[in-house]
Amino acid sequence: MIDQADKLRRLMKKSKNEKSTEKNKSEKRAKVLAITSGKGGVGKTNFALNFSISLQKLGYEVIIFDADVGLANVEILSGVNLKSSISDIILLNKDINEVIAKGPEGIKMVSGGSGLKELALLNEENMLKMLKEIKKLQSTADFIIIDTGAGISSVVLDFVMASDEVIIVTTPDPTSIMDSYTLIKSLSSYGFKEKLNIITNMVDDKSEGKEVFNKLNNATFNFLRIQLNYLGYIERTNIINNAVRNQIPFIVSNPNSIVSKKLNNMTINYTSNRVIKEDNENKSFAEKLLHIFSRRGER
């Protein structure tokens, strides 16, 4: 009987062969950005959703992928009912275009559903189909925003490891800072080498936002020799609380508010400092996920 690792290695070879036949074609390659956190309740999904909309308003094509397995937080916060999920590609033989839904301000939304945990257990035919459909996402957008679950589960770490870059959302709560450190330590042990960006959320002011970042950055540098990148802060405000209750992203409901303007400036700064590079043997997001699952099969 062929083991799981061998099956996945053969799929990777098939994917590579197919790719080599198309290497002369010009293909858009979205930047895949994982937004994650060490613990729940820090506003990760709310940031991911509003950040995605801000990118879209700047003229980028954006897809937000809800990879928080078994939950539907992006769906709830956006007020959009995602009737299909990535699992339906296998279960109902849908293609990715049938799974994508239109979200606020024109962003595209994809639900991971509850089937992502079983991705590595699919048979060869279904795994290859899933791979091809996920690849389509990266060729139709400028950014794919992955809203992961919180914590350091294997599913969370797999999605972050397959991404080009990561944003970690933390708060002044000491447990949030400590859990963010634990997440960074786990990523480091997995060999993550890309930029680690930090957002400090639910702070009282600019000073507290920078103080929270400094605490986390000092710990990661002193013990892990990792330097973090500070993207900015988001203050506590009833505008955000009301937007969550009303299921309308605050950048849509209050576009001229201070918090929306700060987020837009943060987005502009982020995109203006983008470094485009070819890495990881030019593998796509889907191929990197497949590679991670094949390594898991060997463990």
Rank of each mutant, 00 (worst) to 15 (best):
K39P: 00
N218R: 09
N126Q: 07
L58H: 12
L71W: 15
G297Y: 00
R29I: 13
V166Y: 09
L121H: 12
I96Q: 11
I35C: 01
D173S: 01
I144W: 08
I53T: 04
L8D: 06
S284R: 00
S163L: 03
A243L: 02
N50K: 06
E235H: 14
R295Y: 13
K102A: 12
S15W: 11
D204S: 15
Y233Q: 10
S186T: 00
S253N: 14
F293N: 00
M202R: 10
A286Q: 02
D3T: 01
E75C: 03
S163C: 07
D6Y: 02
I239S: 06
E211Q: 04
G43T: 02
S189W: 01
D279A: 07
L58W: 15
D66T: 11
N24A: 07
L183Q: 05
E22N: 02
E124A: 08
D142S: 09
R299T: 03
N81D: 01
S153G: 07
K13V: 11
K283L: 11
N241S: 13
N73S: 05
K19G: 10
A48P: 07
K7N: 03
K44D: 01
F159Y: 00
E165W: 07
N197D: 05
N256Y: 13
N201S: 13
K102I: 13
L58I: 15
K136M: 12
Y233G: 10
N50F: 03
G40L: 01
E165D: 03
E287A: 14
